[in-house]
Computed example of a mutant assay.
Amino acid sequence: MQKSHSAKGLIVITGAGQRVGLHCAAALQRQGYQLVVSYRKMTSGITQLQQAGVHCIAADFTRLDSMAAFIAALAPYPSIRALIHNASSWQPDLPEQQADSSLSTVNQLQQDAAVFDEMQHIHARAPYLLNRALLPKLLASGDGADIIHLTDFVASVGSSKHQAYAASKAALENLTLSLARQLAPEIKVNAIAPALLMFNEGDDDAYRQKALAKSLMAVAPGPAEVLQSILYLLQSEYVTGRVLALDGGRHLKLP
């Protein structure tokens, strides 16, 4: 762990093991920020960040003891310039049970509740708890601080197959509004809501074309789009309580 503190301050990013979180962590460090990140599973990306001097902490934010350990690991840092909540899990709803299902009603409810609870724990409860626990360090940053929530396009339109996920991201957007009201003017609180940013390696061409056709811009812009939004929010002195939509005009792609 680096002992000296960057002139630009400390940025904490949850969920930086791959994709958007990894890209943003590496880029922000190159721009002169000190980085502390969380990860749930060791990845080659975390190894790369560690080799670059980023303080990487294993944490499972569905468990309060693991969250407490993550908070304790931040004790040596006197202040936080920005707290970016990127940790996420895109878990689908379970298939609907048929009338002749062998599962009892209680078991069916337990399985559905497990999906719903995990989505809420990762996307809403963890940011809520971490924001409260780390508030003194954010207030100590001196020249203002930022909380940035990574939400999703579906938070505003819903999802037929990821209802629990969409509901949890909507809860996070509402927390954005409440915190912005509470913490201004010392701390700006905003959300970034992407639609399609990048594909997975296993996505076939038919799926890619169908996904691209959902937006007006018809591109998958990659994680740099989120990075540019983060930099904009960090540099702004006026934007708070907003959800920045990164959706390529998808909201206007009407039938």
Rank of each mutant, 00 (worst) to 15 (best):
D93Q: 06
D152K: 03
A72Y: 04
V12A: 11
A164M: 01
L175Y: 02
Y238M: 10
A170R: 03
R208C: 09
A140N: 14
K137N: 01
Y33T: 12
Q163W: 00
L197N: 10
H149N: 14
N174H: 05
A213M: 09
T47E: 15
V243L: 01
G241S: 10
H251S: 10
A191M: 15
V154G: 04
A218S: 03
G144F: 10
R132A: 15
T62W: 05
D93K: 03
L22V: 07
I71E: 05
K188H: 15
L64G: 02
V12Q: 14
H251T: 02
A69Y: 00
E186I: 00
A27V: 00
P92I: 08
G144C: 10
R242Y: 10
V219H: 05
L103Q: 14
V12F: 06
M1N: 12
F153R: 11
P223I: 00
F61C: 00
E186N: 06
A166P: 06
V37L: 11
L227K: 11
R125L: 14
R132S: 14
P76I: 07
L35Q: 13
P255I: 02
A140P: 04
A75W: 03
A72W: 09
L109G: 12
S38T: 07
G222F: 04
P92M: 13
L216T: 10
H85P: 01
S178E: 14
N131G: 11
D117H: 10
L10P: 09
T43M: 06
D204W: 07
L10V: 09
H162M: 06
L64D: 12
N190G: 14
P255H: 08
V157M: 12
E201I: 02
H55G: 03
Q29K: 13
D100Q: 11
F61I: 01
A25H: 03
T176E: 10
P78A: 04
P95G: 13
G53N: 13
L139D: 14
V20M: 13
D112P: 15
I122G: 09
V37Y: 09
A59V: 11
E201Y: 05
V115I: 15
Y39A: 11
E225Y: 08
A145S: 15
Q97S: 13
L130H: 08
K41G: 00
V106S: 12
V20Y: 02
M119P: 00
D247K: 07
S168V: 03
V54H: 03
V37K: 09
H149D: 04
A206F: 08
N131Y: 02
A82V: 07
T240A: 08
L252N: 12
A184G: 07
L138V: 01
A170Y: 01
S88K: 07
E186G: 02
A213C: 06
S66A: 10
V54M: 06
I57R: 08
P127V: 04
A184K: 08
L135F: 06
E225K: 10
M67Q: 01
A211N: 15
T151L: 07
Q120H: 13
V36N: 15
A27N: 02
L183D: 12
T47K: 15
F153A: 06
L135R: 11
L244D: 05
L246E: 05
S178K: 15
V219P: 03
Q50F: 03
L139E: 13
L231A: 06
L216E: 11
G17M: 12
S79A: 15
A124D: 02
L254F: 06
R63C: 10
A113E: 13
L150F: 07
G21A: 09
